[in-house]
Structures are given as structure tokens and as C-alpha cells.
């Protein structure tokens, strides 16, 4: 069986679930890694090291920046000429678009956010969460190739073997761009919550420390944000100590404490880290749907009745401004940092 794996990268930085897709593909057959972009030679090389049998690289200045149309057309053309049974993608902002468009070109369908995949003769059965993870469905695609975007951390990451190599096959690029990239700014703290193994999140509670005195001249809202930033500094220290990422509730994002890219939940990111520490988060259903599949959940909250304790493995009923820094200290000591 022939399988394409789309290696999603941004300016040469690979979304790690791409390698998880590559590992999964190896369990089904011969794997061709697809790498698009003119800044991606290292990506193509890495694909061999993660186990690709073949690498197709469309290396063209038209593909310098990701644009939906050019990337989709290039992928569709490669799929038409190589005729794979399956195309696997990591689930990212780009791949949802790209797979969606290619599926229209190739008259097939896309199964997104997949957490389980079995071969069934020439076709595949995918398991995916629906209704915000309240249900699971097994779903099939009658078109060919079957297109599947996998959820980050749902499949094991293959080991990288630097001794593996191969010669990259150049592929032609389509240049039918309908849009123009005008600029890019990295978020002040680029986060990739979907791939994080450890997440420490802050909620509205991070602004609640009456004993902090904000600098003079701030109005009430500015003082609240200032307090929240002191709280998030503690959350960030703990995340750094544990080698994790910083998450947030929507109340924290709407309050202007931290940017939207950190938001966990229904309208933010769905995450499933090994460890999720919620600090001053009440645990509204819209937050829980985004994190309840985390392996170990720790909740730190002043209110013993907060719903977050219903999904937590460990809980501390207390003031996060005291508990979080103490936990950071204890962890530093135990981890020898």
C-alpha cells in the first residue's frame, strides 16, 4: 500500500505531529513524505531520518510562504500522478485548509482530528471525537485517496535515526496563487499547545491577589491586568521549571491577561498533555472539553466546590499566589534545577 505523509512546517519548523503521522503511515505500507516550500531542505532530510521511504520535495519560490491555493494544487497534482491510497497529515491550521481543498480537487473526503486508524482492505476506518469529545465516531471515506489529519499526541512519535538518509526527489510546484502574504509576526510567546506534553494554565484567579499594590496612576482595569500579569508570571515560572507550555481560560484571554493563542477549550485549543495544572480556573464545561483528556490533571483553586476538582487527579484548595511559587520551588529542588 502506498501512503503519502504531508510534513507540515512553517519556515522550516516542523509541526511535531507530522512525524507521528509518518510513524503511523509506516505501519500500513510504503511511505512517501511530501515536503513543500523552498526553505525546507532540512525538513526533507529529517523525513528520511524519521523513516520515510521516499521524499518528494516541491522546492519553488512560489511555495516560499504557505498559501492555501498553491499548496493545495501542488499536493493534488502529486496525488494524481502517484495515486496513493492514503494521505496523512498532522492536524494544524494549515492542513485543515490544504486537505479540505485537495479533497475537492480529487473528489474525495477528509477525516479530521483522528485519534485511531485501522486499515480495512483498501480503505480505512478512522476514530475521531465529535460533539466536543462527548462522543466518538468511526468514520469512513469512500473516495481515493482517503485523507486523514491526525490529532497531535494521539499516535507514538517514531525515533529519529540520523544514520538514515536517501536522495530527495524534486517535484513540480503549482503557482496558481490567489492570495499574497504581506507579513508575519511571531506571537510574543509562540505556543503550540496541541503538541505540549505539559501545560500549566491560568484562569481569572490569576488576577485575584488583593495584597499586590499596582503602580500608581492605573485605572481599575489596568490594575486588574497588572495583577494578572504577576499571576501569570508565577504560572510561567512553573511551566518553565517543568518544561511545559502556558495555557489559559477564556476569562483570562477576554480579560486581556494573555493572548488568544494560549486559550484552552471549546473556542480555543483542545489539548491532551500528560500533565495539566489548572491554576485559578473554575472548570466550566467549555474549558473542560478542551483538557479533560489530559493524563494527569492537577487543580489549584480557592473554592473547594469548583467543578475543576471533578476532573482532577490531585487538588489543592488554596491561594494560587502561595501554592504555585511553592510548587515551583519544590519541583526545582527535586528536579535538581
Amino acid at each position: 500500500m502506498k501512503i503519502f505523509v504531508y510534513i507540515d512546517h512553517f519556515k522550516g519548523e516542523v509541526q511535531p505531529a507530522s512525524w507521528e503521522a509518518l510513524g503511523l503511515a509506516k505501519t500500513f505500507g510504503t511511505v512517501t513524505a511530501i515536503v513543500l516550500g523552498s526553505d525546507a531542505n532540512d525538513v526533507a532530510k529529517a523525513a528520511f531520518e524519521f523513516g520515510a521511504d521516499e521524499v518528494l520535495h516541491a522546492d519553488d519560490s512560489a511555495l516560499l510562504d504557505y498559501r492555501a491555493e498553491t499548496y493545495a494544487s501542488t499536493l493534488s497534482a502529486l496525488a494524481s500522478s502517484h495515486n496513493p491510497n492514503l494521505i496523512l497529515f498532522p492536524t494544524t491550521a494549515r492542513t485543515r485548509e490544504l486537505a479540505a481543498m485537495s479533497a475537492v480537487d480529487l473528489n474525495t473526503g477528509v477525516l479530521t482530528d483522528v485519534t485511531g486508524l485501522e486499515a480495512n482492505g483498501d480503505s480505512f476506518i478512522a476514530t475521531r471525537p465529535i460533539y466536543e469529545g462527548k462522543l466518538l465516531e468511526k468514520t469512513v471515506c469512500s473516495g481515493k485517496p482517503v485523507m486523514v489529519t491526525i490529532r497531535g499526541r494521539a499516535f507514538p512519535k517514531p525515533n529519529r535515526d540520523a544514520s538514515k538518509s536517501g536522495s530527495v526527489t524534486k517535484a513540480a510546484a503549482k503557482t496558481d496563487a490567489l492570495s499574497e502574504v504581506k507579513g508575519y509576526s511571531a506571537s510574543e510567546s509562540a505556543v503550540n499547545l496541541g503538541d505540549a506534553g505539559i501545560i500549566v494554565s491560568g484562569g481569572r484567579g490569576v488576577s485575584n491577589n488583593p495584597s499586590l499594590t499596582p503602580p500608581a496612576g492605573m485605572d481599575e482595569k489596568q490594575a486588574e491586568i497588572w495583577r494578572a500579569q504577576q499571576g501569570f508570571a508565577l504560572v510561567t515560572d512553573l511551566a518553565k521549571t517543568l518544561g511545559g507550555a502556558v495555557g489559559a481560560s477564556r476569562a483570562a484571554v477576554d480579560g486581556g491577561y494573555i493572548s488568544y493563542s494560549h486559550q484552552v477549550g471549546q473556542t480555543g485549543k483542545v489539548v491532551s498533555p500528560d500533565l495539566y495544572i489548572a491554576c485559578g480556573v473554575s472548570g466550566a464545561i467549555q474549558h473542560l472539553v478542551g483538557m479533560r483528556n489530559s493524563k494527569v490533571i492537577v487543580a489549584i483553586n480557592k473554592d473547594a466546590d469548583a467543578p475543576i476538582f471533578k476532573v482532577a487527579r490531585y487538588g489543592v484548595v488554596g491561594d494560587l499566589f502561595q501554592i504555585v511559587p511553592a510548587l515551583t520551588e519544590a519541583m526545582k529542588k527535586k528536579l535538581g534545577k
Binding site: 462522543l135 465516531e137 468511526k138 469512513v140 487543580a299
Partner: peptide
């Protein structure tokens, strides 16, 4: 082209919280 073959409830997770208490933070 895409159809549902089966609908399932997710496995129920064992969640009983262990509250960690003590004299000082």
C-alpha cells in the same frame, strides 16, 4: 463521500480527586 460507520460513547474515566492538604504552602 464521508459517512459514519459507528457511534460510541468515550470510555468513562476514573476520576476521584485526592486533595493535598498541609500546614503551610
Amino acid at each position: 463521500i464521508v459517512t459514519r460507520a459507528e457511534l460510541m460513547s468515550p470510555p468513562v474515566r476514573e476520576t476521584s480527586v485526592e486533595i493535598i492538604a498541609g500546614e503551610t504552602p
